[in-house]
Computed example of a mutant assay.
Amino acid sequence: MEITATLVKELRERTGAGMMECKKALTEAGGNVDAAAEALRKSGLAKADKKADRVAAEGRIVAAQADGRAVLVEVNSETDFVAKDENFLAFTQSVADAALGVQDIDALKSATVDGKTVDEARAALIAKVGENVQVRRMATIASSDNVAAYVHGGRIGVLVELKGGDVELARGLAMHVAAMNPPYNKAADVPAEFLAKEKEIELAKMSEKDRAKPAEILEKIIGGKVAKIVNEVSLYGQAYVLDTNQTVEQVLKAAGADVVRFERLAVGEGIEKVVEDYAAEVMKQAGLA
């Protein structure tokens, strides 16, 4: 059977594979578009398996929000170049939209996008962009309170649930969390182990003369230093980025609002990146090192 340009175009639009790959698949399938599409899909899965062990620490955080539910999803690629590719961007947004209907990352991978599971669509994308792609994790908040989703530059995403106040304040707080990355919400959330360690550190930093002061005075001095640290690591104690003359706690009090919780994801955090020394590798192969 003659492999026409129309057949190649149809298969390409259906699978997203390259023109030459489509022509080859059609030739091997005797012009059967369905069989060629299946062969390309299997080929894509095989390529995905080969690339699965390669470190993917770049990528994008993407958000979706509807009907009182908001999600963040981290999708990783190997390079920032692919993270900006239009195919990658379209895939990440479709995954985030699908995440609105599931509860966890495993369910998300089995969810359907454009007639395929997310994992099948991921494999097809790998075949297209030539890099490992991973749908790594998601965060979600479902509430009748004010919920804001904010993504900064595709690199950092934040969800905030705010009781009272309004959506505008919730979004401002999400921007604050993106910028300041507080580990804890309120002072009461800071672990006792953390406080004990900071007290130990502050005591070790003091001079012998200061350490010789009466216990109650010493406790007051160290307590003041630790309280300052607690403010630095808790959302409520930090200076609000949109009005640094006030703390977040003061802003919330004025609005009659309370942050119930927040979630923050940053691209690649916790992934050990491989640093390649290409110059050294070339020299090694050339026998110069």
Rank of each mutant, 00 (worst) to 15 (best):
residue 5 A to I: 04
residue 5 A to H: 01
residue 13 E to G: 14
residue 21 E to Y: 08
residue 22 C to N: 02
residue 32 N to D: 15
residue 41 R to M: 12
residue 44 G to F: 02
residue 45 L to C: 13
residue 57 A to T: 13
residue 66 A to Y: 00
residue 73 V to R: 01
residue 75 V to H: 05
residue 77 S to W: 00
residue 78 E to I: 04
residue 86 E to R: 15
residue 86 E to A: 15
residue 93 Q to N: 11
residue 100 L to F: 06
residue 101 G to I: 04
residue 111 A to N: 03
residue 112 T to R: 04
residue 113 V to S: 01
residue 118 V to K: 01
residue 120 E to K: 06
residue 121 A to E: 05
residue 129 V to T: 07
residue 130 G to N: 09
residue 143 S to K: 12
residue 144 S to C: 04
residue 145 D to S: 05
residue 148 A to E: 04
residue 148 A to T: 08
residue 155 R to A: 14
residue 158 V to L: 09
residue 160 V to N: 00
residue 168 E to L: 11
residue 171 R to Q: 14
residue 175 M to N: 05
residue 185 N to T: 12
residue 187 A to F: 04
residue 188 A to H: 02
residue 189 D to L: 02
residue 190 V to P: 03
residue 206 M to W: 02
residue 208 E to F: 08
residue 208 E to L: 07
residue 212 A to W: 00
residue 221 I to S: 11
residue 222 I to D: 06
residue 222 I to M: 10
residue 225 K to H: 04
residue 231 N to E: 10
residue 235 L to D: 03
residue 243 D to N: 13
residue 244 T to M: 04
residue 245 N to Y: 04
residue 246 Q to L: 13
residue 247 T to D: 03
residue 249 E to G: 08
residue 251 V to Q: 00
residue 253 K to R: 09
residue 254 A to F: 13
residue 256 G to I: 08
residue 259 V to R: 08
residue 260 V to D: 10
residue 261 R to F: 12
residue 273 K to F: 09
residue 277 D to E: 05
residue 286 A to N: 14
